[in-house]
């Protein structure tokens, strides 16, 4: 397979890079990559005008695309990303991995709003922080993330997993308000604290709270009860350990259903340290 390294050669203060995802489907050669049309600094241009392109052969089973020199004005990167691995060594703007289908995006920095919004497959890994609406639906759309996995090492802001339908979101840092608002299904694992209105209007789905704090749950919940030896949790632990080297540790759990005010049967599982 091939490795493509794109290095930014000019300054950028606004960009829409959704067309760059064509790299999934075209022949990976200098000419075809440089001719991909992108919208940069509010003008239509081509990849060749803004990036230097270096292509080499690698032994990997998938193509690897590496982009250097990005900044917070790089938007829509990984839009409808179908295959291949995409590595970015800096911060990015909004709508990263929007409607992503498959493949892998690794970001060695932070991202703005709508990370992985409405994605249906693939993996997104963010080393830094993420903005609002991670894995959520776009404004006016009824279903958010429909599959795939998002791992955020840092913090995430408000409306994480809003209208989420399927998939897995892991946040190792803190989370903002209205997390999992109107969640339909899927899994969210929160390692640290969260702000108010967690699980509000949640229909189904699972929130794992590794932090014992349950003060800010906004949803009306059922009575909590001990959750002993959940086999699905064992499966999930094994899955996370094997795939992401994330250990949830051994502990007891409390479980309750939310949001009972709308007859929801979403579950919040809280680790009892």
């Amino acid at each position: 397979m091939k490795k493509v390294i794109l290095k930014l050669t000019k300054s950028v203060n606004h960009s829409d890079l959704r067309n760059l995802s064509m790299i999934n489907t075209i022949d990976l050669n200098q000419k075809s990559i440089s001719q991909i049309k992108i919208f940069v600094n509010r003008k239509e241009s081509t990849v060749g005008n803004f990036f230097s392109i270096k292509i080499s052969k690698i032994k990997s089973k998938t193509n690897e695309i590496e982009i250097h020199g990005c900044n917070k004005f790089f938007n829509y990167l990984g839009y409808r990303w179908k295959k291949d691995k995409l590595f970015i060594n800096s911060d990015l703007g909004f709508n990263i991995g929007y409607k992503m289908i498959s493949g892998e995006i690794k970001i060695n920095g932070s991202v703005d709003n709508f990370l992985g919004a409405e994605m249906s497959g693939g993996e997104i890994y963010v080393k830094g922080n993420a903005g609002n609406f991670v894995g959520s639906s776009y404004l006016g759309v009824k279903q958010g993330m429909k599959g795939g996995e998002i791992i955020i090492e840092g913090h995430a802001e408000d409306y994480l997993g809003c209208f989420m339908r399927r998939g897995l979101i892991i946040v190792k840092g803190k989370v903002g308000k209205f997390c999992c608002f109107k969640m339909i299904a899927g899994n969210v694992i929160l390692f640290k604290s969260y702000k108010s209105f967690l699980g509000l209007s949640m229909k189904r789905g699972t929130i794992f709270l590794m932090n014992k704090d349950i003060k800010n749950i906004g949803a009306r919940s059922s009575k909590s009860f001990d959750f002993v030896e959940p086999i699905f949790f064992k499966y999930l632990k094994n899955y996370l350990k094997n795939k992401f080297s994330i250990s949830l540790g051994n502990s007891k759990y409390k479980r309750f259903y939310v949001d009972r005010s709308i007859n929801g049967i979403g579950e919040i599982i809280v680790r009892q340290i």
Binding site: G167, N187, E229, F232, K243, I265, E267
Partner: peptide, 19 residues
Amino acid sequence: IAKVLGNKRLWRIPVMDGE
């Protein structure tokens, strides 16, 4: 409850010893 993890879809069916 259905759960999708990776490319596998699992069903959690409530039974008397848990799921």
